[in-house]
Structure formats: structure tokens, C-alpha cells
Amino acid sequence: MSPLVQGAITIFVGVFGCVGYFYAANLLLDKVIYPAKGPNIGRNINRANAIRPWLFLLPAILALSIYLVYPVIGSLIRSMYNRAGNEFIGLGNYTSLAGDPEFQTALINNALWALVVPAAATFFGLVVAQLTDRLSWGNIAKSLIFMPMAISFVGASLIWKFVYAGDPDIGIINAIRDGMGLDPLDPLQLPFWNNFFLMVILVWIQTGFAMVILSAALRGVPEDTIEAAIIDGAGPFRVFFRIKVPQIMGTIVVVWTTITILVLKVFDIVYTMTGGNFGTEILPSYMMSFMFRDDGRATAVAVVIMIVVLPVMIWNIRQAQKEMR
């Protein structure tokens, strides 16, 4: 069977399976288990209504348990076993991680990523959102800036490989250097700075995301408060930073933390651009380098990543909930 047909069948079965499940489960509850008739009609309706949410949540809870909770616990256990997975070594994988200079580099680099990328993407997104709102062709500019969001990380990395290419006829950086009469160099091999060259790619991708959300938030700022500030004598910069930004702080935090969580998971860019060489290792790419060779160690890194992401995630969800209220 061609994969196209297979895919179509999967989608068909999936969508109508869901509809069928909800319809049948609801019917079963209302007509068979607790029918809305007979001597206990009031009690039956109350019970059916108490059970219904659980009925509807059941598939999601099941799927999440099987594909999320079980793997997390499984990973925790697996990370306590040796390379072959047949000998319990307790925290052995973690202590050896702590002693590995490569892991330390990855941890430090990851911290840099987590600081720089969300800050830069949010900042640029905010500035772009404000500036494009005032342009007649702002929506075109917005679509262009949003476009990288639709490119896969690997695809984006390949594009930027051209930007950083050593051949002055291809790479723009070396073209500029060439124009100034300097020798070509490989930006990706510059120690320390190459990290930032990689971060630029993710900032380029995520600015569009930040821009879209923040642009909506900026439009939600009451026009009256802005006019009041103008009458109070505030110039455009003051209106922006003292009136608008504080009022959308909640959204900024949500955007910031959402990007932070993403940053802590991205490995494609490093993997594609440098393979973690030249001191650009980050935790996910470090984990990849152990996968299938030493699963115990790789899962230990995965657990470390989870522990790092967890607090940011909790904060993010809290903020998002606060926004909704």
C-alpha cells in the first residue's frame, strides 16, 4: 500500500474514531448506564454529568500516561543502569557526567542559549511588533518575519550554512571580509563566538513567534492609557517602555518562557551546523552523541534536561493561566 493511502486511512480512522468514541460513550452513559428516566431520574442525571468529563478526558489521559508518564519513569530507571542496561549502578551515570568536561561545556553553553536566545527573540519580536503596527506595509513585513517559523530547524540551519560559508562567493560574512581585504575564515570554528552564530539561527526563527503574540498583546493595550500618557507629556519611547510594555508584561513572560523551553530542547541546529564540535556542544546534542552507544548515559542527560526545563515550564503555565483570568 502506498504511504499516501496509508496516511489518508490513518487520518480518516483517527478523526472519525474520535468522533465515534465521544458519540458512543455519551450515548452509552445517557441511555444505558444512567438513563434520564425512571424513578431515579434526578440522581441519574447528576451522576451522568459527574462522569461525563472523565469520559471525555479518558483518551487524552490514557495517551499521555502511555506516551509521557511511562517514558519519564522508564527513563529515570534506565538512567540508573549501565551501558548494556543489565547492571544497576545507581547514580553512577550522573557522577561520571559531572566529571566530564564535555558535559560541563554543554551545560554552560546551554545556559548561554537559554539566556541569550529568549531575550533576543523576545526583544526583537517586541520591537518589530511595535514598528510594523505603524507601517502601511506592516503586514507584509510581519509575514516575511514570521516565515522562518515555517522552516524546519534543519532547513534553517542549511540556509545559515550558506551565510557562514567559507567561500566568499557564497557566505556573506566572508564576502564582507573579502571586500575589506581580509582572509576568509570559518565563523563556526571561532571558539566561544561560534555559539552565538548558532544562536542567531534560532533567534531568526523565533522572532516571528514572539512578534505575532506580542503584536496581539500590544493591540490589547487600552488606547486611552496611551492618550493619557501623551497628554501627560510622554514621548514615543516613554509611552512604549513605561506604558505599553508594563501592561503586556504577562504576555512577555509567557513568550519568554515558551522560547526558553524550546531552547532547552533544540538540538537540530547544533547537530546540523557543527555536530557539537568546536566547543558548541549543548545538552540535547550531547545526549544525541551517546544515544545508541550508551543509553544509560544518554537517558541521564535527558533527565538532567527535564529537571532544568521543569521549573521554567511550571512558571510558564502559571503565567499563562494568570493571563487568561
Binding site: P222, D224, T225, E227, A228, A229, I243, P246, Q247, M249
Partner: peptide
């Protein structure tokens, strides 16, 4: 203003 237009964060 009709809506007061107070700066909500101050």
C-alpha cells in the same frame, strides 16, 4: 477619560 485611563501597573 470616560474609562479613567489609569495606568494599571502604577
Amino acid at each position: 477619560f470616560q474609562t479613567y485611563a489609569l495606568y494599571p501597573h502604577m
